[in-house]
Simulated scan of single mutants.
Amino acid sequence: MSTSKLTPAEASNLLDHLIGDTAFRALFTTDPVAALASLGISVDHYECLETDELASPEELQLLRSELEAYLTSECTMPMTVVFCFEAGKVGDAIG
């Protein structure tokens, strides 16, 4: 991952894992840098990925199309990516 956006393939792969892979979700919660590295994605601002509570797979699936568009947008700044995955805040972050 660059410091500004994901490629469409990276965004899709990340969401696949956040939605359907319990072990990945657990790793993402405790060590987001390692979780992303396991997908071949690197980040410069790892502290921006920490969440208090990771959004449920259902919440992420509900807004998947919007999340993919947001994560691949030229306007996405690294400091805002974390809020995409925060429970109860996904819609607000990308809306």
Rank of each mutant, 00 (worst) to 15 (best):
V90K: 10
E68R: 08
Y70P: 03
F83P: 01
S12R: 15
V43T: 13
L60C: 12
S12L: 03
R64Q: 15
E53F: 02
A23G: 01
E58D: 14
A23I: 06
I19H: 06
A55E: 11
L67R: 05
T51M: 06
A9C: 05
E66L: 01
A26F: 06
L15R: 09
F28I: 11
G91S: 04
N13T: 14
L18A: 05
E74T: 02
G40Q: 14
C48S: 07
D21H: 08
L49N: 03
S56H: 03
L49C: 04
D92C: 10
S38K: 09
S38I: 11
M77Y: 01
A93M: 07
L62C: 05
L15Q: 00
H45L: 08
F83E: 06
L27F: 00
C75R: 03
I41F: 02
E66T: 08
K5D: 00
G88M: 04
A11N: 02
I41S: 06
V82I: 04
L39H: 03
H45C: 12
G95Y: 00
S38E: 08
T3K: 11
A11E: 09
E74W: 00
M77D: 00
V81P: 06
C84I: 08
L63W: 04
T29D: 14
S56A: 12
Q61S: 15
A35S: 11
A34I: 11
E58M: 02
G95I: 05
T29F: 09
A37N: 14
M79R: 13
G95N: 02
A26P: 03
A11C: 04
A11I: 12
L14E: 09
A9M: 10
C75A: 10
T22I: 13
A35F: 12
G40K: 14
E68M: 11
A55W: 04
L36C: 11
I19K: 07
L6A: 04
E68P: 03
D16P: 07
S12N: 12
A37T: 14
V90H: 05
G88P: 05
T51I: 13
A23R: 12
S2V: 06
D31E: 08
L18Y: 07
V81D: 01
R25K: 15
A69P: 00
G91C: 00
D52Y: 06
Y70F: 13
D52A: 13
V81E: 05
P57W: 07
Y46S: 13
G20N: 14
